[in-house]
Amino acid sequence: MAFISRSLYSSLKKKYALIVITAIFLLIPAASAQQDVSCYHCHTPVVTEFRNNVHYKIGFTCADCHGGSIETNASVISYNVMSGNFIGRPTRLNVTMVCEKCHIEETKNYKQSIHWEQIEKGHLEAATCTDCHGIHEIRAIKDPKSPSNHQNSPATCAKCHSNTELMSAWYYGIKTDRFDTYKESFHWKALRNGYNVVATCADCHENHLTKAHTDPASSTYPANLPMTCGQTDCHPGVKFDAKIAAGLVHDKESLHSGDLLFNKTGMNPQIAAYYLGPFDLAYWIAIFFKILTTSVIGIFAGMVILDFVSRFKMQKRW
C-alpha cells in the first residue's frame, strides 16, 4: 500500500509541473499575438496563411486589402478596425479593384480577357486574380509553391478546366480534356521532369490576357499561332506555315492517348482528316503497334515461361 501511495504522490507532482509548463507554452503564442495584427485573434488560420504572403513580407497588413484601420489596440478592435473604408470580404466581382490599386498593368490586361468578360456577364465562377495567385497565401511567381509558378501553372488551370461540372455551366460546353491532352505533348513530359523552359498553358494562351481561340485578337487564334509559337524564347526563326500552325496542339497530341485515338468516330471530321493523316494512318499505326507489341512479347515471353517450366521436368537438358 505504501508503495502505491508513494508512486501516486510522485506522479501527481509531475502532473502539476506538466500543467504549468503546458500553460506557459500556450501563453507564449497568445502573448506574442498581442503585438501582431489584431485580426489574428479571430482569424487565426487566415492570418497564418497571410504570413506566407509575399505582401506580408514587404510590410502589408490586412487593412491594405480589406480597408479599415490598422490600429492594433485589442480593446477597440471591432470599433476601430472595421471603421472607415472597411470592405470586408471582396466579392469575385470586385476583387480586381483591390489588386488594381497596385497592379495596374496586369488588371488592365485581365479586364480584356475572356475570364473577366464572363464574370461581367454573370458567370462569377470564371477565374479572377485569387484563383490563380491564391487568396491570403499569395506567393511570388518564382516561389515553387506559388500556384502561378511555371511548374504549377497546368495544375492551376486544370483546377477549373478539368472540372466537368464547372465547365458545363457554359451552354456550348468547354472541353475538359485540355490538361490530359497537354500531358501528351513533349512540353509536359519535359516540364514534369524539371525542364523549365518549355511552354505551359500561359505561354500560349497568355496569363492575364487569356482569350478564346475563336477571338481574332487571341494569341491562339489560328492566324496568330505562328507568332505565338515563334516567340523569341520558344521556337524563333522557325517557319510555321499557316496550315501547320493552325493545328490545335491539344487535339493533335490527344491522338496518342487511347481514348480519342481508338474512338475516332467522336473526332471532329476536319481534325481527323488532317491529323490522322492519309487513310487515318495515326489510328492504324497505333493499333498496329498495340497488336505487334502484345503478340511479339506475348509469344516470346510465353516461350520463355515454357522453357523455364520444361526444365523442371527434364533435369538435365544436355
Binding site: 496518342h256 488532317y274 490522322l276 493523316g277 495515326a282 499505326i285 503497334f289 498495340k290 507489341t293
Partner: peptide
C-alpha cells in the same frame, strides 16, 4: 505535320517493344 506526329507514335511504341 501529321507525319511528324506519326513519328512520335512509331518512335515511342517501337522503343517500348
Amino acid at each position: 505535320f501529321a507525319y511528324v506526329h506519326l513519328a512520335t507514335i512509331i518512335h515511342t511504341d517501337e522503343a517500348l517493344l
